[in-house]
Amino acid sequence: MSSLIEMPELVLERIIGFSHFTAVLTLRQVCRDFRNFIDDLKDSKLPDAKFSKIEIELKEDGEKIIFEFVGPDDSLYRLKYAEAGNRRKFNGKGKMVMNADIIDVAIQDVELILRFQKSPLKRLYCDSNAYIHIDPSIHCLPIKLNDMFKMLNRKIKTRELSIVITNFQSEVTIILPIADLETLECIDVYSYYNDTGIEIDDIVKTEQWKKVKEMNFKVPALNLKVEDICHFSRFNIKVNTISAKDLDCLKKTITSGSSNVEFSCLKVINFDENEEILNLWGPAYLSESSSQWYFRSKDSGEDILVVNYQQDRDKIHFDVFELEDVPNGAIVQEYNEN
C-alpha cells in the first residue's frame, strides 16, 4: 500500500485543501516530509480556518501571552505562553518548548495559524493593558507582531479592531498598521486605568484612522481637532474638554454635507462653555436634563441634525432626525453657511 506521504503532490494538496486547519497542523507533526510539504505550500492551497475573532492578550502574571482564536461555530482555540518553564498550553494541554524566548515562540505560532485565515475577521482584539510599567519586556510582543506583518507583507483582514492600552499612543500606532485597510470598518480604543488621556497626533495620521467609518475612543483624546473626526459616520470619543467654537465647527461641517455623521457622541469630561454655545446657537429646546438644538442641513430635505447635550452625563450627541420627529415647540434653525 502507498503511504499517505507518497501520494502525488497535487493529490496531497487537494487532501490538505479539504481538511480542517487543525488536521493540517496535526499532519505537520506527523513527519518532516509532511512538515516541509505543508510549509512550502502557498497559503492559497491551505484551508480557510474562518476565524471570526482573534484575541491577543498580554498579561503580567504567570501566563504572559494569551491567543484566542474563535472559529465560525464558536469553537475556541486558546494558546497560552508562560515564561516559567518555557511552557505553551494549547486548550489546556501544556508542553515545554525548546526556544528560550517565549515571545518568539508565540510569534511563530501566530504566523503559522494566520496562514489559514482567509475570510475577514469580525474582530481583532489586542489587549496590551499588561502592567507594561512593571514588565516592559512584554511590550516587545506588539513590536514583534508589527515586524512580523511587515516582513510577511501581510495584513489581518478584520472589520473591527479593538485595542486596550495603558498610557501611550504608540500602543495604538504599533497595532493599527497590521489591519487591512480595505476590510477595516471600526476601531475601538479602551483603557482600564487611564483617565488622564493620551495624545493622538500620531494616531490621526495613520491610514487606518483616516479610512474607518466608525471610531470608538474611550480614552480621553488629548488635543483633538474636530477636522480629524469629521470623516467618521459614527464616533464615540472621549475628550477632556471642547470649545464652543469647535462644536460649532463640527455642526457646520455636518450641516454643510461635508460629513455623513449618523449617531455619534462626544463624551466631554469638563464642558464649561455653556454660555458661549448659547450665544452661537441660541436658546436650546429643553427636554428633561438635556438641551437640544435642531439644524436644517444644506440639500438634505427633511433631514435635521440634532445636537443633544446631556449635562448630567457629560455627553454631546449628534443625530439625524426626520422633520416629523422634531418635538413640538422646538425651533428648527435654517441652514446658514456662515
Binding site: 503511504s3 487532501i15 485543501g17 479539504f18 488536521a23 496535526t26 506527523v30 513527519c31
Partner: peptide
C-alpha cells in the same frame, strides 16, 4: 471522482493524533 476521494481521505485524517496517523498510514517517525 478525485475530489470525492480527496475529501474521503481528509475525513479519515480528521480528529486523529500524529501518532494515530503514523500508525494508520504507515508513516515512519523522523
Amino acid at each position: 471522482l478525485l475530489t470525492y476521494c480527496c475529501k474521503q481521505v481528509a475525513m479519515m485524517v480528521k480528529g486523529k493524533s500524529p501518532e494515530e496517523i503514523r500508525e494508520i498510514w504507515m508513516i515512519p517517525t523522523d
